[in-house]
Design a protein around this nucleic acid. Structure first.
Lengths: 107, 107
DNA sequence: ACTGTATTTCTATATTTATGGAAATATAGC
DNA sequence: GCTATATTTCCATAAATATAGAAATACAGT
């Protein structure tokens, strides 16, 4: 991963509403949740939510798929894993006792 | 760690210049580097650098200490470790095979 | 085709963040 | 106390980001 991708992904979760959205999707598991359900749970207006979902999608941290009239969003565990690995490597550069590169797996 | 602290810390490294600064300080080890040396290495004007260092300090990801006329900045490995632990927990909520909470240690 | 529901795009606005020169402050050596 | 160097603060400006209503689009059922 290059630094620009890392910054893009970090930016996408460096915002309270988006970090909450991401957490919610992680908790929701691989099936994810429809946009409306996310907005209802977190009390975010539809257009604002759409903006944030686009940011997260653009950074690659979430996926979306259409299920009839609903669009389901779900956490991209691999991408988050990659970001954590990048940060771990950067945090631990030159240090001993680092975690293995594979930190997180979807259930 | 609460979500606001996580967002603050993420924001502080969700910017290319600051992530570069942080990486450099991690590589430099616990002794850290004087501000001027950071600016020279990364080609960042003094006032801009000072702004970014303040952001990182405010988020708690770096320390500073005065050594004669120089101010040495160094990575706060514990804070970074805490952030990674928070993200790992949030990434892995409900998932098996998570990394241990202690991911990164200074050399 | 028409209707209702889900979501996005458009648009404007407010807010925050980044940049860097100039001036101010701090420290050390003479 | 003067001078040189290191760093920060002040300031203005530019650029990016966040917010949310209104309009547009997409889909499914009738």
């Amino acid at each position: 991963m290059d630094i620009k991708s890392a910054v893009l992904q970090l930016s996408s979760i460096a915002q309270e509403a988006r970090l909450e959205i991401f957490r919610l999707l992680v908790q929701a598991g691989p099936e994810g949740l429809p946009a409306g359900s996310i907005g209802e749970t977190l009390q975010i207006p539809a257009s604002t939510l759409s903006f944030h979902l686009k940011e997260l999608s653009h950074a690659g941290l979430i996926h979306s798929r259409q299920v009839s009239r609903f669009i389901y969003y779900s956490a991209n565990y691999e991408a988050m894993n990659g970001l954590l690995a990048y940060l771990t490597e950067n945090c631990c550069a030159g240090a001993k006792d680092c975690a293995p590169s594979s930190i997180c797996k979807p259930k």
